[in-house]
Simulated scan of single mutants.
Amino acid sequence: MLKDLAAQYYKQGYNCAESITRAGNEYYNLGLEEKAFRMTGAFGGGLQVGDICGALSGSACVISSKYIETKAHECADLRPIMLKLVRAFQTKFSSRLCAQIKAKFYSKEVACLNTVTTAAEVLEEVINEYEKDKQTK
């Protein structure tokens, strides 16, 4: 499961965004290279300032890598799946902001591990549902 891979990366010291992106790359065979992962580093900690959750940003990176072939503007899948992702994330965490999510889900024992695994579950559910819906249309 995606959440298990994300947990493994988080336990290796990667931040929320890096963990989700690395797990998504492995799980969905995205073929990302090491340099691409470094680009996600600043997303951790809510862009390092408690803003948009790194796990959500990392999830957006996975979706972009999975669905965009050349340009975002040319990807009909991007807007609808991102809308589903953001809504599902907001429903699960009652926020999209790192500082607010951290206040509820962070613990000294595991830091943001629970956020990472829950976000990975949300991402996997959204992708699975989206793919299923596409097949029935």
Rank of each mutant, 00 (worst) to 15 (best):
R38A: 06
T136S: 12
K134P: 15
A60N: 12
A6G: 13
A17H: 09
K108L: 04
A111H: 10
G54E: 04
Y106K: 07
I20C: 13
G54I: 14
D51M: 13
S57R: 05
F43A: 07
C75L: 02
K104Q: 06
Y28H: 01
Y130N: 00
I101P: 03
V116F: 11
C16I: 08
Y28L: 04
N128V: 09
L5T: 00
A42Y: 15
I68V: 14
V126T: 11
H73E: 06
A119H: 12
V49P: 00
L47Y: 15
S95L: 00
G13N: 01
L78C: 05
L56K: 08
R79V: 15
A60E: 12
K3V: 03
L78E: 02
K132P: 10
R87Y: 03
S59Q: 14
V49Q: 13
D4P: 00
A111G: 00
E69C: 06
A23H: 05
E125M: 11
I81T: 07
L97F: 10
L32I: 00
G54H: 11
I81V: 15
G50C: 01
K92F: 02
E124S: 04
V110K: 11
K35T: 10
Y130W: 07
I68L: 04
L113P: 05
E125S: 05
F105K: 11
I20T: 12
M1E: 06
G46W: 00
S57N: 14
C112Y: 08
N128T: 04
P80L: 10
A36I: 08
K66A: 11
S65P: 05
K104L: 05
E124N: 03
I68T: 15
V62R: 09
E131G: 05
G44P: 11
S19A: 13
E124K: 07
S64M: 13
A119G: 11
L32A: 03
I52K: 09
K3T: 03
R87S: 10
I127D: 04
Q8C: 01
I127N: 01
V116T: 06
L2P: 09
L97A: 02
I20S: 12
E109Y: 01
A120S: 13
R22G: 02
Q8Y: 09
Q135V: 15
G31C: 09
L97S: 06
E131D: 15
N128M: 04
G31L: 13
L47R: 12
Q48W: 15
Y106P: 06
T136P: 03
E18S: 02
Y10F: 15
S65T: 04
L47G: 09
N29D: 15
Q90G: 10
V116C: 03
E74G: 07
K132M: 09
L2C: 05
E26W: 02
V122E: 03
I101Y: 09
T21G: 05
A119N: 10
M82V: 06
R22T: 03
I63A: 06
S65R: 01
H73T: 08
C53G: 07
K102E: 05
